[in-house]
Nucleic acid binder design. Structure first.
Length: 489
RNA sequence: GACUCGGUAGCUCAGCUGGUAGAGCAGUGGCCUUUUAAGCCAUUGGCCGCGGGUUCGAAUCCCGCCCGAGUCACCA
């Protein structure tokens, strides 16, 4: 099949047609003609697109050209186009080729608005056959649905499955709306390093790389946090970044090794203000993207309803049916878990064991938007100790919806001596085998010693937000090129 | 990482308890000047994911591996 198309390509060149010209003066996109009344038809149009259907009937033919907005039917009649071009050029057009056509607009017997082609140019020859692009009334026949091929060759997925393109259009709208809201609140968008000598700001294993000239090991960022805080130290009062983070961990329906996070930092605010702002931010994004009532993974949720707020131990104790805040060692948590028939992995430290219990006992219940507040300090080395005086708690919230975490935020710790102790405790956990504990970032500690104002910081998982708003069950369906193992040669 | 399911033509899929690969669409040739999954006639096309084994004979049975999906485990 590829040989046949190469042959056509060669023949076209011999006949003097350029199969790969430089440009085409498009005047109308496919959607511009849809829904027009007959007396509104433009006198003449130039349209361009990929041939996705082709019905030849001897001396006349119909085809559809697909552009970024949809499909437009064209009518190609030999007596209008001319014998030579109809035979030599149009006769060698295949599904998948790009055409530019010029002509008048009319309505066919069956009512479809159609361009009658007076002039035709081949804009690009296609050498490989497309997967199933046949469709009627939006239903594809032999639809291209092999997930592996769709992810590996997303361009074919986008050509053959218009709904997929729509998801990514909405993704762009969601991100644009987040920017607009933050900009309008006076946040400044910044860019911070992807390549970092010391990674931090989250609990995760990093990707490691190497800079030849600097002769230095560098890590791909797992979070923007510590750089954005440096900017608040430097005098920006409100900053945000929408950026890729990289975590060297497993992949599943809600995890991709590189993912997009929004982080924003707000000087002089605390986590209560950040919580209110986060709630209104998400509600507003939902309103601008199809409404606050969402169906997601078989569950229905409504972001218009005020988000529930529960403290960490309040809700953990409820589902554990026991006051877990009184257990203060990994051993005690392990005994508790064993009593409930839950087997925790061996060698978990206190924080890991507690975190694990929360994930197992509580998270699945958090379907409607719920803020969990006031986390144990052991889980939150960058968050400020709770103002209530309880030295074991920090001012932190996480937002859960549909059993998944969407946001994480603190009243940020700004006491440099406290911060040093917490990071050093993390370093000890690392030394004890916790691969996700954070290393000490001396440069950051030094920056903090110059004085860091009180502030709130929030991180939001953008991919997950898009999943929620577009009803996609897998993160792979909101990332254009999700991570895949290399294909066998 | 564990388990389950899957990988056959460009796409969607058949192929039963082993006998040497099939359909529709796409492609190619022919007919057809308002069709729309156009139609009619003819026809090309396959390391049956990879490697090994059993067998006279393997797409089919057995073992190993690769890739994907789902579930679980870990993380956002």
């Amino acid at each position: 099949m590829r040989r046949v198309r190469r042959q056509k390509l060669a023949e076209l060149r011999e006949l003097g047609y350029d199969p790969f010209p430089y440009s085409y003066p498009v005047t109308h996109h496919s959607s511009a003609l849809q829904g027009l009344e007959d007396d509104q038809f433009p006198a003449e149009v130039h349209i361009a697109g990929r041939v996705v259907s082709l019905r030849r009937m001897g001396k006349a033919s119909f085809a559809h050209l697909q552009d970024h907005q949809g499909r437009q039917q064209i009518y190609v009649k030999r007596d209008i186009l001319g014998d030579d071009i109809y035979r030599d050029l149009f006769g060698r057009v295949d599904l998948g080729d790009f055409l530019g056509v010029q002509g008048r607009v009319f309505r066919t017997r069956t009512g479809e608005i159609t361009v009658e082609v007076a002039r035709m140019e081949l804009l690009a020859k296609s050498l490989r056959p497309l997967p199933g692009v046949k469709e009627k009334d939006g239903t594809a026949f032999d639809p291209f649905e092999d997930k592996e091929q769709r992810y590996r060759r997303r361009y074919l997925d986008l050509i053959a499955n218009p709904d997929v393109k729509q998801v990514f259009v909405r993704r762009a709208q969601v991100i644009r709306h987040l920017r607009e809201l933050l900009d309008s609140e006076g946040f400044i968008e910044v860019e911070t390093p992807v390549l970092q000598p010391v990674y931090g700001g989250a609990s995760a294993r990093p990707f490691k790389t190497y800079h030849n000239t600097l002769d230095q090991t560098l890590y791909l960022r797992i979070a923007d946090e510590l750089y954005l805080k440096r900017l608040i130290i430097g005098g920006f009062d409100k900053v945000y970044e929408i950026a890729k983070n990289f975590r060297n961990e497993g992949m599943d329906k809600s995890h991709n090794p590189e993912f997009t996070a929004l982080e924003f930092y707000w000087a002089y605010a605390d986590y209560n203000q950040a919580m209110d702002f986060t709630e209104s931010l998400l509600r507003s994004v939902a309103e601008s993207s199809g409404g606050t009532r969402l169906k997601f993974q078989g569950q229905e949720l409504d972001l218009a309803v005020p988000f529930a707020r529960h403290s960490y131990f309040e809700i953990l104790n409820k589902y554990a049916d026991k006051d877990l805040s009184r257990l203060d060692s990994a051993g005690q948590l392990n005994s508790f878990a064993a009593g409930r028939g839950i087997s925790l992995e061996k060698d978990l430290n206190y924080g890991q064991a507690l975190n694990k219990l929360f994930d197992l006992l509580v998270e699945p219940h958090l379907v409607q938007p719920t803020f969990i507040v006031d986390y144990p300090k052991a889980l939150s080395p960058l968050a400020k100790t709770h103002r209530s005086g309880n030295a074991d708690l920090v001012e932190r919230f996480e937002l859960f919806m549909a059993g998944m975490e969407f946001a994480n935020a603190f009243s940020e710790l700004n006491d440099p001596l406290d911060q040093r102790e917490r990071l050093e405790a993390q370093a000890q956990l690392r030394a004890a085998g916790d691969e996700e504990a954070q290393p000490v970032d001396e440069d950051f500690l030094e920056a903090q010693e110059y004085g860091m104002p009180p502030m709130a910081g929030v991180g939001i998982g953008v991919d997950r937000l898009v999943m929620l708003l577009t009803g996609q069950d897998s993160i792979k369906d909101v990332i254009l090129f999700p991570a895949m193992r290399p294909q066998q040669p």
